[in-house]
Amino acid sequence: MFTGIIEETGKVTALNRENGNLHIKVKAQMTSELKVDQSVAHNGVCLTVVNIEGDEYTVTAIQETQEKSNLGDLKVGAPVNLERGMKLGARLDGHIVQGHVDQTAVCKQVLEKEGSWEFTFEYDPTLQNVTIEKGSITVNGVSLTVVNSKMNEFSVAIIPYTFEQTTFKNLKEGDRVNLEFDVIGKYVKRLNELRQA
């Protein structure tokens, strides 16, 4: 379980493919505090630490994870949003995030707005995921509030702190991002589907 509050931005130092698996080596300040078998969210995707060497650690994304997320798009040198699992009893500053990406979206527009930024994302509506205005959404692991909700797109406002402390400062139009929709909304949607069945 995560909160969507990014701890730091790590750097991909190596990518190794083995059959359908992608082994991702990341350099991060938090590495000294990690242990093998620990869960860390990478751009919102929960992955298990499988190896630690100095200030770098390795995680593995299986084929399904690569297909459902943007992790397969990573390049050596790319920044990645990182968050360790939430501590029981700690303050929940973002929202409940599972680290399970529902689908990807494409950045459609970036607008600078007098000290903040508005990012608009477009996603495939056939999976029937929904956003609501003022509702929660996770974009590349960052807990955000939806400011403009449409059928298959939404916008979020990014304050300067979030812009600088996450990969949003590197995000441009046409880039693919990971989306995790609000878990409460997903349960409501599923209950509604069962009622109509």
Rank of each mutant, 00 (worst) to 15 (best):
V97W: 07
T120F: 06
G115V: 15
Y187F: 08
S39T: 08
R195C: 03
E64H: 10
E173W: 15
V183N: 03
H95R: 07
K113P: 05
E153R: 06
E180F: 04
I96P: 00
I158R: 10
E164K: 10
T3N: 14
D182N: 06
I52T: 14
T31I: 13
L74Q: 06
T131E: 03
G20R: 06
D175E: 15
N51E: 15
V146C: 03
S143P: 06
E8N: 12
T13F: 01
V45I: 11
D93N: 07
E122K: 04
L171N: 02
L22S: 10
G10Y: 06
K186C: 00
V139F: 06
G10A: 09
Y161I: 01
E133D: 06
N43V: 03
V188P: 00
V177G: 02
T58V: 15
E67C: 05
N43D: 11
S149Y: 06
V110D: 12
V130P: 02
E56R: 12
V26T: 06
I132E: 11
T120Y: 02
L34Q: 03
V26M: 13
M151W: 00
E133C: 00
D93C: 01
L22R: 07
G141E: 09
G94T: 03
V45F: 07
M151N: 13
V146S: 08
N140Q: 04
T60R: 08
H100D: 12
G115E: 15
L111R: 13
T104I: 11
Y187T: 00
T13E: 04
K186I: 04
L179M: 05
L92P: 02
P125G: 09
N51V: 10
Q109V: 01
L127V: 09
A41I: 04
Q103C: 13
S32W: 09
E8K: 10
V188E: 05
L144S: 04
L179D: 01
P125L: 10
A197D: 07
Y187E: 01
G77H: 14
T48V: 14
F119W: 05
D37K: 05
L71N: 11
E118S: 11
L144D: 02
L47N: 11
N16P: 00
T3S: 14
F119S: 03
K113E: 15
H23R: 07
T13W: 02
H100E: 04
V183W: 03
D124F: 11
A90F: 08
N170C: 13
N148K: 14
E18T: 02
F121N: 02
N16R: 05
T162N: 00
L34P: 00
G174Y: 05
L47R: 09
